Computed example of a mutant assay.
Amino acid sequence: MSVGSDQVYPPYDYLEGGVTKGFDADVMAVLAPKLGVKVQFMDTRFASLIPGLQANRFDMIASALYVTPARAKVVDYIAYAKTGGSLMVRSDDTFDPKKPGDLCGKRVANLKGAAWVPELQKVSQAECGSNPIDVKEFATSAEAAQALLSRGADVVFDDAGVSKAAVVASGDRLKITSTEILFPVVMGLAVKKGNDELLARLKEAFEPLKNSDEYKAILAKYNLALPTDAEVTAALIESN
Rank of each mutant, 00 (worst) to 15 (best):
D6A: 15
V8T: 11
G17P: 06
G18R: 01
G18N: 11
V19M: 08
G22V: 03
G22L: 03
M28D: 10
V30L: 12
V30E: 07
K34M: 08
K34N: 11
V37K: 12
V39M: 07
Q40Y: 00
T44A: 02
T44K: 01
F46Q: 02
L49M: 05
I50W: 02
I50S: 06
P51H: 03
D59T: 05
M60K: 00
M60S: 10
I61D: 04
A64R: 00
Y66I: 10
P69E: 03
A70P: 11
A72K: 00
A72Q: 06
K73P: 13
V74E: 12
V75D: 00
Y77V: 04
I78V: 13
A79P: 13
Y80N: 15
K82I: 09
T83S: 15
G84T: 07
G85W: 08
S86F: 06
L87K: 09
L87C: 13
V89Y: 00
V89W: 03
R90T: 04
T94W: 04
D96V: 03
D96E: 09
P97T: 01
P97D: 08
K98C: 07
K99M: 09
G101D: 09
A109Q: 06
L111S: 07
G113R: 01
A114K: 00
A115K: 01
Q121T: 10
S124E: 08
Q125F: 10
E127V: 07
S130I: 06
I133L: 11
I133Q: 10
D134R: 13
D134I: 13
F138H: 14
A139I: 04
T140V: 08
T140Q: 04
T140D: 11
A142T: 01
A145H: 12
Q146H: 11
L148E: 02
L149R: 08
L149D: 08
A153V: 09
D154W: 02
D154Q: 01
V155K: 01
V156I: 08
A160D: 08
A160H: 05
G161L: 04
S163W: 00
A165L: 01
V168E: 13
A169D: 14
A169Q: 12
S170R: 05
S170E: 10
S170D: 05
L174Y: 04
K175M: 06
S178P: 14
L182V: 10
F183P: 02
V186Q: 04
L189K: 01
V191T: 13
E197Q: 13
L199P: 06
L202D: 09
E204S: 14
A205V: 07
E207S: 09
E207W: 12
E207A: 15
K210Q: 15
N211P: 10
S212K: 02
D213C: 01
E214K: 07
K216P: 12
K216C: 09
K216I: 01
A217Y: 02
I218S: 07
Y222V: 08
L226P: 12
T228A: 13
A230K: 15
E231T: 05
T233Q: 15
I237W: 10
E238T: 12
N240P: 14
N240H: 15
